[in-house]
Write a protein that binds this DNA or RNA. Structure first.
Lengths: 265, 265
DNA sequence: ATAACATAACACCAGAAGACGGTAAGACAG
DNA sequence: CTGTCTTACCGTCTTCTGGTGTTATGTTAT
């Protein structure tokens, strides 16, 4: 919960404040708008706007007189995604993953920031076919030349900024790519986990639809679990972790049969 | 070819210049970068950037020493789409179409600027389910609350900024919406037309997947035809034209059985 | 080898969009 | 009905991105 690597940087001011407000709300269960005005030193208007945005993302519930927190799962998969970061590590993992891609290949990406870092490296590996359900990735890839972009449609989720549900799973199943890069919210020595059933559905479909599967894991994901067991780590051909991962945490994965590679900064 | 309503306005400066450059290239067959520098009074760098963008969209082909034009069909469906506009009329058509939508309905939109105007009106008709394969529409709808967004994935086309191909058609076929709003590049008294086969494929699927079908037509589309016959106008429940459409052009449509409505400014 | 052409890297500028607060009007609970 | 909370609207300020040119470096034909 308490992030060791506290990087409130790398985020626009309102986005950062919103993340902090979200954390504040989750911590206190339910608070009033005025509390937040004092706590963050902004006008009541701004607080309301922030809360509206957080509600749109499904992080909080507004009612007259204040807001309350949503179930942890939602908070985890959204704000975690924002505060989290560990930007440098993600970039290192992406560079490492990049080495596995050859021009001409087909690549699938899930809706994770790790995958997004990877997108920025694609420009130099053309031609390339990329399939993803992650809206930020889609908009970026649409700008690039010599990349065949295959959007995986579905029901939009504001929390993840991606498409999911049955339509998405079906779209995935119609494909078969050379590579899959994906991430999860938690990794035990034996399994990968995720909180949300809908997401699990899509990720499982992706696992079935790729030849080589790669799991991208920054060290914050280890030592944790989440509600749904997504798949055993041995289902992945490679698990890439960042350099900051303690050896103590890597060893158990290897002992259980996973192929772990460490991405150097 | 020569647009009677010459509206170079309503477009960002570079976009306009690019459209003009495209027209210039199509007219002269092939030109050098330096020609364009003189013709448009910008630096050679800017010309190159413009040409890169046009190449990305598939409008021109770059080679050392200059650029050449692509087949007319591509030009038509891209630059036409940009120069075209008639912004006020589109907005009027959108407002007219809006009246057909009730909260709670499901709506499908194709990849047309007409449809895009409609998106801006959705905010007030919530809740609403919207399905579309048009990237600009998707990004806008993702911002809105109380709208269930169903992205229709597929192969990205830079020319249209939308998704298409078989994957898209399949995604469409898995749905059935209350309403469909779509547009085409040309309309004869009896039929709707489009240049590109791939687009026709998707639009036909859309026609099969909606209960009520609405065709949005600004007056520039009439009196023209294109390679592929998409569907008879009687397949549409309503055809909406703008106010500037001469009666002489509307009458034939009605005589052939189409239901035509005129959108007032 | 050289001249013409193309790309990359940097820096600047302007216009647009976003962020924010204030006030006033509207909704809700007690 | 009244006080509190919320929303809508407007004006201001700032921030940021997009568009541009200049210079420098790379590339390709002759």
């Amino acid at each position: 919960m308490t992030s060791d690597v506290d990087d409130t940087a790398e985020l626009s001011r309102p986005a950062r404040r919103q993340a902090e407000i979200a954390a504040y709300v989750v911590k206190n269960g339910s608070v009033s708008a005025n509390d937040l005005v004092e706590a963050f030193g902004v006008s009541v208007m701004t607080v309301h706007r922030d809360l509206d945005e957080l509600e749109r993302q499904g992080v909080v519930r507004k009612y007259r007189g204040g807001v309350s927190a949503q179930p942890t799962s939602v908070f985890e998969s959204n704000v975690a995604y924002r505060l989290n970061t560990a930007h440098a590590e993600k970039a290192a993992i992406a560079r490492h993953a990049r080495a596995m891609i050859e021009p001409g290949m087909s690549v699938m990406l899930d809706d994770s920031t790790s995958a997004l870092s990877l997108v920025d490296l694609f420009e130099d590996i053309t031609p390339l076919t990329v399939a993803t359900n992650f809206l930020p990735a889609i908009t970026r890839l649409a700008q690039l030349r010599d990349i065949t972009l295959l959007a995986l449609g579905g029901i939009y989720s504001a929390t993840h900024d991606s498409f999911g549900g049955m339509p998405c799973a079906e779209a995935v199943e119609a494909l078969h790519t050379d590579l899959l890069f994906c991430s999860v919210s938690a990794v035990s020595p034996t399994h990968a986990f995720h909180q949300e059933e809908e997401i699990v559905l899509v990720k499982r479909a992706m696992l079935r639809s790729a030849k080589t599967k790669v799991l991208l894991v920054d060290h914050a994901k280890l030592q944790r679990t989440a509600l749904h067991r997504l798949a055993p780590l041995t289902d992945f051909d490679v698990v890439i972790v960042d350099e900051k991962t303690p050896d103590d945490l890597i060893r158990p994965l290897r002992e259980h049969g996973a192929t772990v590679e460490v991405a150097k900064l």
